[in-house]
Simulated scan of single mutants.
Amino acid sequence: MSEGKDYQEFLKHAKENTSRLQKQTKAVGADYFKMHTDAMKDGALSQKEKELMALSIAISTRCEGCIVSHLAEAKASGASVQEVVETVNIAIMMSGGPAIVYGGIALEAAEQYYGADLK
């Protein structure tokens, strides 16, 4: 298990900040979060597949909060740790060096969420 940052605590804090932001931005925040909720529902693609896609994009765009959030939701949607690893591989293929750094963050967080040893 990772000995670095506590990603579950990080996500809890990020969600608190997001809640504060949503209250202050009123309709803009509410509209964004409705779009997010609607986009992530099962459709032609399952929520799990969408969360893994979002995780790959989060790695590629270097958004640590997004990485942790979509990792947690991917796990909750039934994604295996191996599916997460393969998602990281796709981010690396598409984004190169920066995805290696942020993919490492995703795997470190996955160790905590899945209780896996990915070393």
Score class of each variant (00 low, 15 high):
residue 57 I to A: 02
residue 23 K to I: 07
residue 7 Y to W: 11
residue 48 K to P: 01
residue 51 E to S: 07
residue 57 I to R: 00
residue 36 H to N: 08
residue 10 F to A: 05
residue 1 M to A: 11
residue 45 L to G: 00
residue 112 Q to P: 05
residue 90 I to F: 05
residue 70 H to F: 09
residue 46 S to P: 04
residue 51 E to P: 03
residue 5 K to H: 04
residue 25 T to Y: 06
residue 34 K to N: 04
residue 39 A to M: 14
residue 91 A to F: 08
residue 57 I to E: 00
residue 25 T to V: 11
residue 14 A to P: 02
residue 11 L to S: 00
residue 54 A to N: 01
residue 119 K to W: 13
residue 81 V to K: 05
residue 60 S to H: 01
residue 17 N to I: 14
residue 63 C to Q: 01
residue 22 Q to P: 01
residue 80 S to Y: 11
residue 22 Q to K: 15
residue 44 A to R: 01
residue 42 D to T: 04
residue 53 M to P: 00
residue 9 E to H: 03
residue 7 Y to M: 07
residue 108 E to W: 02
residue 29 G to W: 08
residue 83 E to T: 01
residue 58 A to R: 01
residue 31 D to P: 03
residue 91 A to H: 02
residue 111 E to A: 12
residue 111 E to F: 08
residue 22 Q to C: 13
residue 111 E to C: 12
residue 100 I to A: 09
residue 60 S to Q: 13
residue 89 N to R: 10
residue 95 S to K: 09
residue 9 E to M: 15
residue 113 Y to V: 11
residue 88 V to C: 06
residue 69 S to I: 08
residue 75 K to Q: 08
residue 25 T to E: 02
residue 25 T to C: 07
residue 40 M to P: 02
residue 74 A to R: 00
residue 6 D to E: 05
residue 46 S to A: 12
residue 31 D to N: 13
residue 51 E to H: 07
residue 67 I to E: 04
residue 19 S to I: 14
residue 20 R to M: 12
residue 45 L to I: 04
residue 60 S to V: 12
residue 18 T to G: 11
residue 84 V to E: 00
residue 100 I to R: 06
residue 58 A to V: 09
residue 75 K to I: 11
residue 112 Q to T: 09
residue 101 V to N: 06
residue 23 K to G: 07
residue 1 M to C: 12
residue 84 V to K: 01
residue 52 L to Y: 00
residue 5 K to P: 03
residue 57 I to L: 15
residue 35 M to T: 06
residue 12 K to R: 14
residue 33 F to L: 14
residue 38 D to L: 14
residue 48 K to E: 07
residue 63 C to A: 06
residue 7 Y to H: 03
residue 119 K to E: 15
residue 34 K to R: 14
residue 34 K to L: 14
residue 65 G to F: 05
residue 46 S to K: 12
residue 62 R to E: 10
residue 115 G to S: 08
residue 25 T to K: 11
residue 92 I to L: 07
residue 56 S to H: 04
residue 44 A to F: 04
residue 53 M to F: 06
residue 84 V to H: 00
residue 13 H to N: 11
residue 60 S to Y: 03
residue 61 T to I: 15
residue 59 I to R: 00
residue 48 K to C: 09
residue 56 S to V: 12
residue 79 A to S: 12
residue 114 Y to L: 13
residue 97 G to A: 15
residue 100 I to T: 10
residue 74 A to W: 01
residue 101 V to D: 03
residue 8 Q to C: 05
residue 50 K to C: 08
